[in-house]
Design a protein around this nucleic acid. Structure first.
Lengths: 239, 239
DNA sequence: GTTTGTCGGATACAAAGCGTTACAATCGGA
DNA sequence: TCCGATTGTAACGCTTTGTATCCGACAAAC
């Protein structure tokens, strides 16, 4: 991620005072900070917002950070930075095993946090996340007769292989990971192209059209990627 | 939901004193609060009003909150926030399993409640509810020979496929989920278009006409979607 | 029974959304 | 640096959707 759009960080932290301090510091350093105090909702929030990075407190009401990390990993490819109170050293190992990318002990030192964040973002650029063989992410996504394999970036429809270009594959993978959800252009531009949607651009529509053609989907009566007029697009499970 | 219309919250709570406090607090915070003290009537009320959010007390005379939640889930897609007295911890798990989206222990702290409500509303916009694979919602609705499949947004009449546009499908799904109920224009505009009915607009009448035509329903003698003069429209079960 | 106002169906038209094609810019490998 | 493949831009036209209008049906009042 870079200057195209501001980096979006989701901070999962129940300690509101701490969250405020951290949030303000990161905002001052040109990040767009989202805050979620409730562990029970954190998982959904991560998947919905698809932030560039997640800061995840381990001790949370509702649901603890380790559980969230494990649950969310198969469907969220971005970096997760765990926060833990002193004396929970052992959690570090567990956390990293469950898919966290880094680990920081409380009390939080804002400067140190910022350093770690930048390191993580450098390591895992958006490009890499689309790339996909991130540990923990499910390597294959099935939507009816369609199979998307992230490991070697291949797509099968039934028994035949579909040749997709880079952009087409990225788009398809994004839809495949959000089957049954209406995806707005704002979301698609943000998550797939990494730029802000300006309300006029049509490039994604064109990508969709090309993708549909290769998937044998008619633009007039699509069976896989439906157009939701005025809203966006929706991938459905066929047959 | 957003600035188009004020957010409508249905509060199911038999403790009138509590209901009054909560209701006034939410009203002051720019919500439109509906109140239902009777558990036995709560289910019907939820389906009729189709509020943007339901606050559901677990301990209720008539019928308990868990039962209501389970019964209503397949036909109500909005967020449900459960309230429970202290010491009923175990209910949390059960509640979430039955389709509640969040859970709050009594005594109710208005500020906290407000925070939770806003979080839930952010998560579950009207757009998302169009999406379809919401957990707990029934994926298919049958009305006699008519079958509406929300998972892939298809409609079958007998053995033939009916091609509907986005708007037509949304409208049909809404009627299908409220078979046998007279739906006023106020309700339809609010729930399907997400705007307030101004008393003059005729766009829904036109949508109905187009839908009827595709369903093979004559506008003069409709067999599926009846016009209720002075009130609204009514979908009936077959012939 | 006639009149009058209201409601809802039907048609025509206009605006907006989206699919499609052609072409230009860009990328990536010889 | 060149060339083909990929990706985005521009333009066009069809489809969808809403607005305006007209007209017939129904209901209440006379």
């Amino acid at each position: 991620m870079n200057n195209e759009t501001m980096c979006r960080i989701l901070l999962v932290e129940d300690d509101l005072k701490l969250a405020k301090v951290v949030g303000e510091y990161l905002t001052a350093n040109n990040f767009h900070v989202l805050h979620e105090p409730d562990g029970a909702r954190a998982g959904g929030r991560i998947l919905d917002e698809n932030p560039d990075l997640v800061i995840l407190d381990i001790m949370l009401p509702g649901k603890d950070g380790l559980t969230i990390c494990r649950e969310v990993r198969p469907r969220y490819a971005g970096p997760i930075l765990m926060l833990t109170a002193l004396g929970e050293e052992t959690d570090e190992v567990v956390g990293l095993e469950l898919g966290a990318d880094d680990y920081l002990a409380k009390p939080v030192r804002p400067r140190l946090l910022l350093t770690r964040i930048n390191a993580l973002l450098r390591r895992t650029s958006r490009l890499e996340r689309l790339g996909a063989v991130d540990e923990g992410m499910e390597p294959r996504v099935n939507i009816g007769s369609l199979e998307v394999d992230t490991a070697n970036r291949t797509v099968h429809l039934g028994d035949q292989v579909i040749e997709l270009t880079t952009a087409e594959f990225d788009l398809l993978l994004y839809f495949a990971r959000h089957v049954g959800k209406v995806l707005t252009r704002d979301q698609i531009y943000r998550d797939v192209r990494g730029i802000e949607y300006n309300g006029l651009d049509r490039s994604i529509d064109l990508r969709i059209a090309r993708l549909r053609r290769k998937l044998g989907d008619d633009g007039k009566q699509p069976q896989r990627i439906k157009s939701i007029r005025g809203a966006g697009y929706l991938m459905v499970e066929d047959q």
